[in-house]
Design a protein around this nucleic acid. Structure first.
Lengths: 155, 155
DNA sequence: CTGAATACCGAGTGATTTAGTAGGTAATTA
DNA sequence: TAATTACCTACTAAATCACTCGGTATTCAG
């Protein structure tokens, strides 16, 4: 899995689209304004998203972007994979004398972990995120935020 | 969260250390050989890992690296945060007219998701990964691999 | 005591990625 | 017809990645 800032931008933009695109398309100019992402960079990201049918563009005045399918059918993994091409790691491409040996165990472990992270992100949809926050006032309890801010510290 | 190839290398190296370091320290030369990571790049990664007390170095012949603490006390998030400095994203640093408004909702959503991903990785330890694979023969069922290979495809 | 092995340290580097500019064309609506 | 939007390609400064090189410090084996 590869979760870079590029993927973050894409997820953020898609969330914006899911929230603001309920009545009519949303322009890239609006997303750029809302999220503080450069317009042309958004164009590149949306070219990739469009390639995976995650968004649908409408040209001309009054145009913009719609979600390509229901927010419940778009997972975070979908979005990240669209903009951040998945690179297969290890699997021991014959480089080392690794086949079946104990050497390969680490690779297998990483591969399993990688799959688990992917499944985790594949099970969270845009719809989930939006639904869990509708009707929530600022400062209210949020079921997603189990641990408040333990990031820079150890877990 | 930021899960780059750099973090992958670090996790892979730490897994190697957890597996092969049961009786005596493991040298960077060995890890380099086992995992196909350049020796000097490992040095850089381990400098960061050492800074967070995740590994402990022993100099001189017969030296090498130990885990800094028990494998059960080292989470994947620990490792990734050590080598890949955490960058705080959005939180609306006052840039936009965003405080309390609907604009900020997307940022909050991403922030919550980000926290959830972090917690997920914080709850997986090196020990977990090793334990779940001990006594497992190749080709056997692996509880971690729920979905086989659905990565390049949509979820 | 000497030499080898190892960790430790910093500077430099080509390739890639990031995030953005610039300058268009195509389609659609007012 | 003109404005507005998506759509497309090329370019770029800065950062990051993964690595090389050349050292120093410490410890063990002989």
């Amino acid at each position: 899995m590869r979760l870079s800032t590029k993927g973050r931008y894409a997820v953020t933009a898609m969330l914006d689209l899911a929230i603001n695109g309920k009545n009519g398309p949303v322009t890239l100019a609006e997303i750029s304004e809302n999220q503080g992402i450069s317009f042309s960079y958004l164009e590149q990201l949306f070219a990739a998203l469009r390639g995976k049918d995650l968004v649908r563009g409408v040209r001309g005045p009054g145009g913009g972007y719609y979600l390509g399918k229901s927010a419940d059918e778009i997972s975070i993994a979908n979005i990240i994979c669209a903009v951040d091409e998945w690179v297969e790691f290890t699997r021991c491409g014959g480089r080392q004398n690794c086949s079946g040996g104990a050497r390969c165990l680490t690779h297998t472990l990483w591969d399993d972990l990688s799959t688990e992270i992917f499944n985790f992100l594949a099970n969270i949809t845009l719809g989930d995120l939006v639904k869990r926050n509708l009707g929530k006032k600022s400062g209210e309890e949020n079921p997603l935020s189990i641990v408040a801010n333990s990031r820079s510290e150890a877990a």
